[in-house]
Nucleic acid binder design. Structure first.
Lengths: 342, 342
DNA sequence: CTGTTAGCGCTTTCAC
DNA sequence: GTGAAAGCGCTAACAG
């Protein structure tokens, strides 16, 4: 009368089995395997051997039940296909994987209901904490203050300042991008970027303008906002060249836009980088390295965002909470599409 | 004397709390909440209200401990950054998320040691099953036959035929690609593809050649194997045009290669698709839709691979194991880069 | 219909 | 040093 038509689980070895085989009590077996000091060396050895023979793995469920801590965390993403979630997720997985923490992955598909459902499920599994990964840097609704476990928001900050959020510093990203172009001797810099509804687009533009102002300059023409696409990069470049043929650098809001920009520049006989330097954001390898010339780009250090979020969560679990929005610096990755004026 | 400097867990409500508040025994509370029939309606109501007031969530650890089933599975990837793992992972997450199963994500970073470590950790957490996601379609070492839970391999098949593997049908993919080109009236078809060390490259070429043979044709020139890159696409096209200017279609081993091919074709004054049709594999949106013209490509249906793997795992957990390598069909996504000859 | 009892696998006092 | 016993939160027998 087996409980179910279930799997032929050949009774995974339990501590009781180990203890019996070693001829000791479960208590002693437990102590022996967990390195407790109150065990005779010879006994410990016998237990360890028994455990090995049975390929015993302690049941973490039972442990967690007792300890009140499960060594698991929930990773809640809103869109897995988006390419920003993945590096963050990798960073987090990395930081956790090093320790003894396992990660539950849940994708809410951008749906609040689904998200709520996942949160409840995760809490039922008694995760020790939650990381919420957004797909854009605009603030998102907080999960609330009354959760029984700490939460860290990554990439997309929570709209509640009492929560802790870790995000890349897009303003600074715009700043260092322009600084690089200035260092290359460029002074007539245009900006072609993406959807103005994205905070990232506005932040980058703001930072860039700030850096220009610091050098007593401004953009050539107004920044052009529209779409994060190659097509827009092409269209905007055509327009730009008509009004401002004196341009010597184009800062693009994304690598995709930059690809389009470069393409049209070359078609129109402008050499990159000799005549016009081009740089993008995101440092998306498949685009940057296949570009002709390879594309200089600002890397948002997303893996680091993930790692930092994981570490912050650790801290919060251990009772050292932080709050507010913390930003992480980005970095310029220099390739052939920008170069010093000779 | 709290157990640890741990989180200020304000004592998450337990079934005992609910029972006390409702004025019944834990057993009755359990029955009431789980829809067991032997409870008076009025009592059940009282328990449910109590549970709600305490925002009680049943502890899945305790449940799992008792049931011998945890409702969790492990998803073992070898390279998260690779773009093939993600859709598969999404499909699997999707199929599971619909039910009551939670997914542990582990990335082995292509390292066998790390993988082994993750497997042990997952078994310790008593997952009900494992999905192993590879990053290429070449067979990979089996995790072994003596695991206490069922395993399904996705994308990369196991080298042990006793295991169950779900993979896209690359031979058929090559076949349907050529059939599409033939349907477009093309007969002088060249093949530029990636690393010959990849089974996927060889399979696709084999399938393509088979379909050509069926029409009494063969490739124009020998298939050119080298790298999965735009750069190789460009170089190979230059070579191709020298020896075989009569070509009227190029089947590319990947979308990246196709992008390079199209670029050089256009530079050399060949119209796409009027003079030469071009198609790729993978249907990687960012590349296919930004291409000029948009790129026809073979989609490997990876989400479906993930979903199928999840379903197969369900089956195996319920005691209906399968084995061997099962292939799933791919599909041609037609865009502007291929067109009927007028 | 409801409550008592036992036990899932493990760790932890506390006697011996 | 070692073992007996209690209990983490829950469900499933079995009594009442």
């Amino acid at each position: 009368m087996t409980p179910a038509p279930g799997p032929a689980r050949s009774h995974t070895a339990t501590l009781t089995d180990v203890a019996r085989l070693a001829g000791v009590s479960v208590a002693t077996a437990s102590k022996a395997l967990n390195g407790r000091s109150q065990v005779r060396a010879e006994t410990r050895q016998r237990v360890i051997e028994a455990a090995e023979r049975l390929s015993f793995r302690p049941n973490q469920l039972a442990r967690g039940l007792l300890a009140g801590r499960t060594g698991t965390v929930g990773l809640l993403t809103s869109d897995l296909e988006g390419r920003f979630s993945i590096p963050i997720l990798m960073g987090a997985e990395d930081a956790f994987g090093a320790g003894e923490v396992a990660v539950f992955l849940c994708d809410a598909r951008g749906d609040a209901i689904r998200e709520q459902h996942h949160v409840r499920a995760l809490l039922g599994r008694r995760v020790d904490g939650l990381i919420v990964v957004g797909s854009r840097t605009d603030p998102r609704p907080s999960l609330g203050r009354d959760l029984p476990v700490p939460v860290v928001y990554a990439y997309a900050p929570s709209d509640d300042p009492a929560d802790l959020s870790i995000v890349p510093d897009n303003v600074d990203a715009g700043r260092i991008a322009v600084e690089h172009l200035l260092a290359c001797g460029r002074t007539r810099i245009a900006h072609i970027t993406g959807d103005p509804g994205y905070l990232a687009a506005r932040d980058r533009a703001d930072g860039a303008r700030e850096a220009l102002a610091g050098a007593g300059l401004d953009f050539v023409g107004e920044p052009r906002f529209a779409e994060w696409s190659e097509g827009w990069g092409r269209a905007a470049t055509a327009m730009l060249l008509e009004g401002h043929s004196e341009v010597d650098a184009v800062l693009c809001g994304s690598d995709q836009i930059a690809r389009g920009v470069i393409e049209v520049l070359r078609e129109r006989g402008h050499r990159v980088p000799e005549d016009v330097a081009v740089m993008g954001f995101d440092n998306w390898q498949v685009l940057t390295s296949a570009s002709r010339p390879p594309l200089t780009s600002v890397d948002m250090n997303l893996e680091q965002v993930g790692r930092a979020a994981a570490q912050a969560l650790f801290g919060a679990i251990d009772g050292i909470p932080r709050s507010g929005v913390e930003t992480l610096p980005c970095r310029v990755v220099i390739r052939g599409s920008t170069a010093h004026l000779s």
